[in-house]
Design a protein around this nucleic acid. Structure first.
Lengths: 333, 333
DNA sequence: ACTGGCACTCATCGCCGTTGAGTGCCAAGC
DNA sequence: GCTTGGCACTCAACGGCGATGAGTGCCAGT
């Protein structure tokens, strides 16, 4: 038995199943693809593929569907990513180029991704860790309430509201402001925080600074993600075999989403298929994600979440393309 | 026939149907409620109610379910809103009091609301129109890129990225900054914009200001809303009689959501039942919303979206309670 | 005006035979 | 040694059918 024909059969099964959403039988296979052999032969190959765990039958007298393992093999060895047409590229570029600020970039990206892939798209905000502080502003909203606004090199604006134990006067606000200025401008937040901590240890600063440092080091905002295209979930199963519930819940838990997206990798596209992911409830969903950020350095992740039964090549190409364009835009900024 | 008993029957039907999700028959009604009459009598009342269009039967040999008109009557005349228990009130208060800034308030509110009502919650950001400018910051990200940061009295931070036709030097940035300062501090955005426009007309300002004014007057951010509890959609129909699709789509179109929430009314709770709403596709969903804002002045809306078949009294109480607490918090800020 | 009785409707459920897609196996052919 | 056509077998899906029972409308009696 030829091994490469077996793989061709697997590929054909995956492709057909993804497009029709129905178990595929030997006869239909040879009709739709030119495999050059008879259904009986294909059946033998199928039996072997099933033996090896790449495909399975939902019930005895039905066709085969790929297993997670089958999709994995398909993605790893049977997929060649075709670059997008120049028309598509241009469409992406013009859509994203219209963005006016970072928020807008992120929102447009998520929208674009969900439209390109017809899946639920997830985009993480660029993490703060690599961007540097460009400007610091302190505003006293009330005698004991200080608003800290950090403007970062990426154009992102971070705000933290701080409640103080004691009221501070305008002049000490100015003092504090200038010490923070000295320590933070041009540095990453992490560096600024440690510099301020050091200063603090010398006792040279007001105790207010300590509170502020506390607020600044709270990286809650690293976890910000934006979700889009949830309406695609409705199309998720015309046959509602999968429970949408856990996924909908996951989409609201940003921490969960971040874990799903995985470690940002600007190198390639990460594909996590079904049970390979960290959550048992999401065993029937796959994640296609990648890192993005200026200068090939991954600052954050973006990707899509969808049924294991999805068009992996097309999705991977789209995710990669969007990541590249977003990176380029961040480069310019 | 007694008219008030007929109403009691309607009330009973609504309550039963909402809790069981199944058409309710005359026999079940007299068993579960103490109406003091026989099923046959109830049947007569039901026939009358159907005649008047308050209830209907899904098919001949089934029980009755309320129509939109029936729900409307129920909400208008058969509902007495019980205040929440003090324990509940305290729970709400402590949950919201933990918020550290405006973003946090909004996000906590939406979460709270969805948990209280088990519906999809929607909270609009407080509109800018009534809040005043507390601080203005201009940062030159690049020679021809200016970031305008407005810090408002509500603690909200607004940012706009502006592309300039021509590069500006540091000193003229300082100039522009001070003119804007003079015009904007303590004013609402609208007032600041018109003041600057007037100034502009005298030719006393750089053309850069014109561009900035343009950016500031762009109220795109008024339309910001936050959605939460979409997972409750899964519970929407255990019987999937209603299409979730259009609703999911609506949840992503913030403009649509805002229209759904309706005009902010701090007075009472607005209930829009099924077809009463502006969208034909959402004929089977209801909206319960109200305005909120400091000092009884409505600045924005919040509310929930759910199936027409919902617990209106409970939901209305929850929406009202959350709106009040959020308003109180904004008062303090 | 209310109630009990009664005939009627009709969705739901379980049962059953038919249909047909799809498989596995085997013996024949290249 | 693969490949192929043939063939028996399995079983989900479908449609028809009668039983069941919840629920109704109507009517006559109190």
């Amino acid at each position: 038995m030829q091994d490469d024909r077996k793989l061709a059969v697997l590929r054909a099964i995956v492709e057909d199943y993804v497009s029709t959403q129905e178990p595929v039988g030997s006869k239909a296979l040879v009709e739709r693809h030119s495999l050059g052999v008879s259904p009986a032969t294909v059946r033998n190959d199928m039996a072997a593929l099933e033996e090896e765990g790449f495909i399975t039958q939902p019930h005895t007298s039905a066709g085969r569907i790929p297993t997670d393992k089958g999709y994995r093999l398909f993605v790893d060895r049977l997929t060649t990513l075709k670059p997008m047409s120049t028309a598509e590229k241009r469409a992406i570029a013009t859509f994203l180029d219209g963005a006016v600020d970072l928020d807008d970039v992120v929102h447009r990206s998520v929208r674009l991704l969900s439209q390109l892939t017809h899946q639920v798209a997830v985009v993480q905000y660029p993490t703060l860790s690599r961007s540097t502080v460009r400007h610091v502003e302190l505003v006293a909203l009330a005698p004991n309430r200080l608003l800290v606004v950090l403007i970062l090199s990426t154009g992102r604006v971070e705000q933290r509201l701080v409640e103080l134990d004691q009221p501070v006067g305008d002049d000490s606000v100015a003092d504090i402001r200038s010490s923070i200025h000295r320590a933070a401008i041009g540095e990453t937040i992490a560096n600024a925080v440690s510099a301020l901590r050091a200063l603090e240890a010398t006792g040279a600063t007001s105790s207010v600074v300590a509170t502020l440092v506390e607020a600044m080091s709270d990286h809650r905002s690293d976890e910000r993600v934006v979700v889009g295209g949830a309406a695609n979930l409705a199309r998720y199963g015309d046959s509602f075999d999968v429970d949408v519930r856990p996924l909908l819940e996951a989409l609201e838990e940003h921490v969960v989403l971040l874990k799903l997206l995985g470690e940002a990798q600007s190198g390639g596209v990460l594909v996590r298929i079904g049970h390979e992911g960290p959550y048992e409830e999401l065993a029937s969903t796959s994640v296609v994600s990648t890192g993005y950020g200026p200068g090939d350095e991954a600052m954050a992740s973006l990707g899509i979440v969808g049924p294991t039964r999805m068009d992996y090549p097309g999705t991977m190409v789209a995710v990669r393309a969007v990541a590249r364009y977003v990176s380029r835009i961040l480069d310019e900024a």
